[in-house]
Design a protein around this nucleic acid. Structure first.
Lengths: 335, 335
DNA sequence: TTGTAGGCGTTATCAC
DNA sequence: GTGATAACGCCTACAA
């Protein structure tokens, strides 16, 4: 592959001149510039990103670490990130850390080896201290979907407590009083916070939730089915189910329907996330919109800013609140 | 950030020795090795991937170019790729080229600038010649979802003609005779081939499809709705609809249901791809399984092999055929 | 406006 | 076993 040297030789100029042409440097004669460009084209010259990153001390790639791509939620997140990096001609270097401490750590370190100075990371397993430490040494380090007070200005996150409250309130407004929660068995912050929010809102309305009104399962369609099956088997009485996410909500609905329980006429179901399937399942799912794409965009811009040394206003915060999307799975409580 | 030089100084050895330790080189004293490792740990040393790539002449990252991530189909593809690169500690460098010639080209070139020597690319807009040329200069260049004869051993693709035949045959077997196709308005190979396959199969059964039995629209839920709306508006008679993909099928079903036409009792619908939503929509979608994840894995392994110089058997081919997944959206034709 | 030279962090080829 | 030292391809003062 042709190098800058080859071009220089062919054009009869020095390396420096070619370099200037490549980088649209200021002081190059018009004729020279044109000729060099021509030759670069002919020889199919392609700058070596590695060499450039080495000397420049900064990579042209933007790091992202997320659990996995097959989940539409994360795919959407990646899409948000990509939508901004694309505009500024920056490549995405992707690392996956499947919600495991070791993998997440490794994911970040790999990005570091590539000298990414801007990255948005989704980490649930790593402890605060580790993350804080990274934030202090990596200029453009930004966390998404997590809040750590000490580095609050580098966190783009969703208020899950508010989310839980909103879900509960919506059901309350429809007259529901018998609640059941279909939650995730992975006890990261998210499910914990959401349940806290729900309980809080219910408590304010004089309702307490006994532990057996919560079933924990894998946060997917199947998990939702199983959780609902358990409630049904236990003979639990309820008219409102609050799910950890849309997939679980969908699974719960399926199971309900299999038992000839009508949604939303007999039982109401609400999801969380508002991913694609919420629109596709029948009845269409009423859910909370997790503005993940918007948040991803914000996080990316933030990371880029920090990396560029542009520090945002002092202790600004990037907290988002989920909003309700009313579709068809929630109805008035049967009186 | 600490460099190999810092380590050497601190440990009182030469650069060469440190380098050997890092790469588990052969001739290093046990004591020295241990001491150096200790110091690397203490100083938080991290090899510089760029420097390494520069001198080594090969990148530790695997390139992938795809249209976009928000589409679950491509997210699944990316997931397949990631599942193999993860095992061998290789990072993914992602480029998006939104089915446009210029963008696709740029996506590949960027990867090249990073000196990726293995990549799997999904390109629909670039012409054969360009792709063939890349295949000849890039060791580990592999195409996915596209077949070009000249570089057939670097193509991992799905037989869409067979797919079309399979769809049609399945409907035929249920006794259907009145067909309608909901296709994509983007005239890349895929829809064209599928329609060809369908027509072929129908022809063998004495059925010809007039052009107005095909509606073209955007290949998503909304496009499916619009296409179906058009058929309904035209008063077209049919009992079987063959969709370009699951999203369109789902849209068509929704529109049918909105008009109180029962699926599958009055009209049968079949999709293509078998993405997540096929399981979520109601009735559950009968569709063709596009083994994209498996194919992505294959493509990745292939790219890695080629990049390593291991040439697979001479003119091997990597053609996949979609298989039918029977769910609930197809029924016997009403007699 | 153009050229020279030093260095970015590694690996690899020699010597010792 | 270990240590110099020359690349790798590029950028960037500093000279000319």
């Amino acid at each position: 592959m042709a190098t800058i040297k080859d071009i220089a030789q062919e054009a009869g100029v020095s390396l420096a001149t070619v370099s200037r042409v490549i980088n649209n440097g200021p002081k190059v004669g018009d004729a020279t510039r044109k000729r060099v460009k021509q030759i670069m084209l002919e020889m199919g010259y392609r700058p070596n990103a590695n060499a450039r990153a080495l000397v420049t001390q900064r990579s042209a790639s933007f790091g992202i670490v997320l659990p996995e791509l097959s989940d539409p939620f994360f795919a959407t997140m990646a899409h948000g990130i990509e939508s901004v990096t694309r505009k500024i001609d920056v490549q995405i270097l992707m690392s996956t850390g499947s919600i495991e401490k070791a993998t997440e750590l490794k994911a970040i370190e790999t990005l570091l080896e590539h000298r990414c100075n801007a990255m948005v990371v989704h980490s649930k397993a790593l402890d605060d201290a580790t993350l804080i430490n990274f934030a202090k040494t990596i200029p453009g380090f930004v966390l998404i979907n997590r809040y750590i007070e000490e580095i609050g200005n580098r966190c783009v996150w969703l208020d899950n407590i508010a989310g839980g409250q909103t879900m509960a309130r919506h059901m309350l407004n429809q007259g529901h009083t018998k609640f059941v929660i279909v939650s995730s068995k992975y006890q990261i912050d998210d499910p914990v916070d959401r349940i806290a929010g729900i309980k809080q809102e219910l408590a304010e309305n004089g309702i307490t939730l006994s532990p057996d009104m919560i079933e924990y399962s894998t946060p997917d369609q199947e998990g939702g089915e199983i959780a609902m099956q358990n409630f049904l088997a236990k003979g639990t009485e309820f008219t409102a189910v609050l799910a950890y996410n849309d997939a679980m909500a969908s699974g719960a609905m399926t199971m309900l329907q299999d038992h000839n329980i009508d949604v939303p006429n007999e039982v109401s179901v609400i999801g969380y996330d508002d991913v694609l399937l919420a629109k596709y399942c029948r009845p269409k799912l009423t859910t909370l919109r997790y503005p993940i794409e918007m948040m991803a965009v914000k996080a990316t811009e933030l990371a880029l800013q920090y990396a560029a040394g542009t520090v945002p206003e002092a202790d600004c915060t990037f907290k988002y609140a989920p909003t309700i999307v009313k579709r068809e799975s929630v109805g008035k409580a049967i009186s």
